[in-house]
Computed example of a mutant assay.
Amino acid sequence: MKKKLHIATLGLMMSLLILVLNVMLNSTEAQAKTQITATAAMENAPTIQLDKTYKLAAKDSSKASDADVLAWSSDRWNGCEFVKFTLDQKTQLILEAKDTSNSNCWLQIYDANGKTLTEQYCVGTRSEVYKLSQAITLNKGTYYLGLEPHDADTFALKVKTTVKCSESTMKLNKSESTTIDAIAEKNGQVVSNPKFTYKTSNKKIAKVSSKGKVVAVAPGTCKITVSYKGFSKNVTVIVLPGKISSISSVSNVSKSIKLKWKAQTGVSGHEVWMYDKDLKEYAKEKTVSKGFSTATISGLKKKTTYKFKVRAFVKVGSKKYYGDFSKPYTAKTKK
C-alpha cells in the first residue's frame, strides 16, 4: 500500500513539474513575441533600433502574429502610423524595405514637427519596386518613420557603413596565403572589433577562411567579398601562373618550329618569346589563346638554331599578370 502511495506521489510531482515547465516555456515564447505597435499620433510613437531589420505587417494581416512591428489596418485608408528613432549626430542612413507578400507598403521619414523629409516610397505591386535601398543624411535629432503596410514587408534603417581594405588587389603565387586587413567606419568613426564575413567567388582559384585568410589554389582571378552588417567591399585576388615547364618541339621544318609545353589550367593565355641575335635580347613572338599549349613560329631561316622562352598570364580587364618565364629552349630548323 505504501509502495503504491509512493508511486502515485512521484507521478503527481512529475505532472506538476511538467506543468511548471510548460508555463515557463509559454511565458518565454510570449516575451520573445513582444511586438512594437506603431501609432497614429507622433507623440506616442514607439522607438525602433537602427541597424536592425524588422518584419512589418498590417494589424489585420494574416501574418500579423509573426511580425515585429504592426502598423495600419485596412479601415485606415490614406493614413500612415509612426515609429521613431533618434540620432546623436549627423548621420547618413540607408532606408531599406522589401515587399514579402506581393502587396504594397508606403514609407516616409518626418522631422519632429511633422515635416516630410523624403518622398513617399512605395514597395510592391503598384510601384513594381519590390526592394528599396534609399540613402538620406539627417542631422542630430528625433525623427519619425511613417509606415503603411497593406500586408507583410520588412524594413530597416541602417547607419551607412564603409568597409575598407588595405589592398583592393592581391597577387599570390599558387599555395601562397595572406590575410585581408579590413576596417569598418560609421560616421567617420572606426568600428571597434567588427565581425566581418568573407566569401570567395571561386573556391577553385582562392579559398578564404572565416578570419579572412586567403589561400591561392590555382591560377586565375576571383573576388573576395568582405561584409559587415549588409555593407561590403570586394578584393580582387590574382593567382599568378606557375613557371612553364617541359617545352619541346613537335615538328621542325626548314622555316618553322612548332613548340609544345605543359598546359596550366586557369590561365588566360601564353606568350612565346624568341631570342634576337642582333638585339641580343628576347622579344615577344606570339600570343597563344586560352586553352592552347602549342605555337608554330614561322618565317625562320633554314638550318638555324633558335632559342625560345614561354610564360603564362592571367588577364584582369585589359591588364595582364604574368608568371615566370620557362628556361630557354633551343631548337633548330631543318634544311
Rank of each mutant, 00 (worst) to 15 (best):
V237I: 15
V217L: 01
A216Y: 00
V239A: 07
T225S: 13
V237F: 09
S227Q: 13
P219Y: 01
N234S: 15
Y228M: 12
T225G: 00
G230W: 13
N234T: 10
S227P: 11
S232C: 05
A218P: 00
V239Q: 03
T236R: 07
Y228A: 07
I238Q: 07
Y228K: 13
V214M: 04
V239M: 05
L240H: 01
V237K: 02
T225N: 12
N234E: 15
V215M: 12
I224P: 07
Y228R: 13
S227L: 06
P219K: 02
K223G: 01
V217S: 04
T236I: 14
P219H: 02
K223E: 14
T221E: 10
F231Q: 08
Y228T: 11
S210W: 03
V208E: 06
I238K: 02
S209F: 06
V226Q: 06
V237A: 06
G230K: 12
A218V: 00
T236C: 09
S227F: 07
S232V: 10
N234C: 04
T236S: 15
G212W: 04
V237Q: 08
K223H: 11
A216M: 02
V217N: 09
K229F: 01
S232T: 14
K229E: 15
T236L: 12
V226Y: 08
S210D: 15
V214C: 09
S210L: 11
G220R: 09
A218W: 00
I238L: 13
S209R: 08
G220N: 08
V208F: 09
N234A: 14
V239G: 10
K211N: 12
G220I: 03
V226C: 13
A218C: 02
K213F: 03
Y228Q: 12
V237S: 04
C222Y: 02
A218E: 13
G220S: 11
V239F: 02
I238G: 04
V217Y: 00
V235W: 09
F231A: 04
V208Y: 08
V239N: 04
G220C: 09
Y228S: 10
V208I: 14
G220D: 06
N234L: 02
